[in-house]
Amino acid sequence: MELSLATRTVDEHTVLEVGGEVDVYTAPRLRERLVELVDSGVRSVVVDLGGVEFLDSTGLGVLVGAMKRLRVANGRFSLVCSKESLLKIFRITALDQVFPIYPTIEAATRDSDGSATS
């Protein structure tokens, strides 16, 4: 399934809903969208991976890049993910220790200090 990207606003957060496959072919589009958001002044990005069917190292690299970009801008970056297959990828790569990961958008937007509790 092709990559799909959609944004919406929840309070002061911008939620980027990602769907389909995030891989070496589609990840550049995700990177472009995240860069656009940060460059436009967004300072709290929540990436919802609920619709993602496949995620590889290239996609993970894009997410880390966005987090770094926001950190430089004193912004906040978090992920929403409850799929075990994706959570296993974060655990194996140790990126679960790098990203705040929440089970729901509500939890991500409620926890304004950026420390995941999931």
Binding site: D56, S57, V64, M67, I89, T93, L95, V98
Partner: peptide, 26 residues
């Protein structure tokens, strides 16, 4: 290692390569 993954000095290519190998090995 986890503390290097988000290090500013790590290039995107090095990060993707390291993460990719972690996934293969894992």
């Amino acid at each position: 290692p986890p503390d290097e993954l988000a290090d500013e000095s790590l290039t995107d290519e090095a990060l993707t390569t390291g993460v990719g190998f972690a996934l293969l090995a894992g």
